[in-house]
Design a protein around this nucleic acid. Sequence first.
DNA 1: TCCTTATTGAAAATAGTTTTCAATAAGAAA
DNA 2: TTTCTTATTGAAAACTATTTTCAATAAGGA
Lengths: 145, 145
Amino acid sequence: MNWQDKLNKEGLRLTTPRRVVISVLEAAGVPLSPQTIHQRSLDADEEIGLVSVYRTLEMLTDLGLVRRVHGHEACLGYVLASPGHHHHLVCRSCSTAVEFSGMDDLSTLIDHIQEETGFLVDEHMLQFSGLCPQCRKRTPHHDQD
Amino acid sequence: MNWQDKLNKEGLRLTTPRRVVISVLEAAGVPLSPQTIHQRSLDADEEIGLVSVYRTLEMLTDLGLVRRVHGHEACLGYVLASPGHHHHLVCRSCSTAVEFSGMDDLSTLIDHIQEETGFLVDEHMLQFSGLCPQCRKRTPHHDQD
DNA sequence: TCCTTATTGAAAATAGTTTTCAATAAGAAA
DNA sequence: TTTCTTATTGAAAACTATTTTCAATAAGGA
Ligand SMILES: [Mn+2]
Ligand SMILES: [Mn+2]
Ligand SMILES: [Zn+2]
Ligand SMILES: [Zn+2]
């Protein structure tokens, strides 16, 4: 299903600002902040308002089509996300972001935590960072620690 | 080692604002925002500046004595942290935060991700939320889903 | 007790995000 | 295609969070 249908199905309209935000995110493939998305759309001679960037990101996040990616310190930005439960792995050198599920290993961990703490665990946030294959080549090797 | 020594060891001074921030965090046991910490210190008749709260939190975070806790949407706040690598589990009802390590299960997951993606994974952020034992009792039961 | 300097806090500056509201344009219907 | 409804836009203002500046203060070693 294309973007037009995805939005119309929800009674939403595929407008120029929304088209532009989506295409900037598609072209980037790395997490981008609202400001950066806005700047890149201006660079592409698409004069949309920063407010619309915020509103589009919120809307797409609600639909599960975009996801926030966080670092230890702050929110790194927004990336297009495929539907369903998964997590992101971000390269600390070039910011390339890839998705993974990791369901099986995590459920083992969650079971252990529930037993140890007595908590009922129903939500989690998990993100990894490291070096992508390309950036590993450029960086001097370290032995695994 | 007490707080006095922990700070002096680094050439830092244990001042009134720092003492107050620490005692508010100790009394709370749940993640608190800078604003909340400031308000609670005023409530306790300790008139410190909000700026000092920010500066103290940054300093303690750098020393690894305090940790930021995040939700999917935003930063939930700061909690005292024991030294070393671990994660937090936060109750979505009463905000109680407990620590856990989960090293073993995670390293299995990390190995899988490294094999699948070719990334070198060297950092991660993992946080769980759910219901603590007390809050489970107060809440109508749901079967595990 | 003295002295050095790390630290404080009021104020201003900066940054990020949300609200408001009249004008506009998407897309369903005719 | 044209019309009509209303979801959406964007400039401006409001709001909130955080950082910087700098003269005054106080921590703690000497
Ligand atoms: Mn998961
Ligand atoms: Mn870990
Ligand atoms: Zn990379
Ligand atoms: Zn609870």
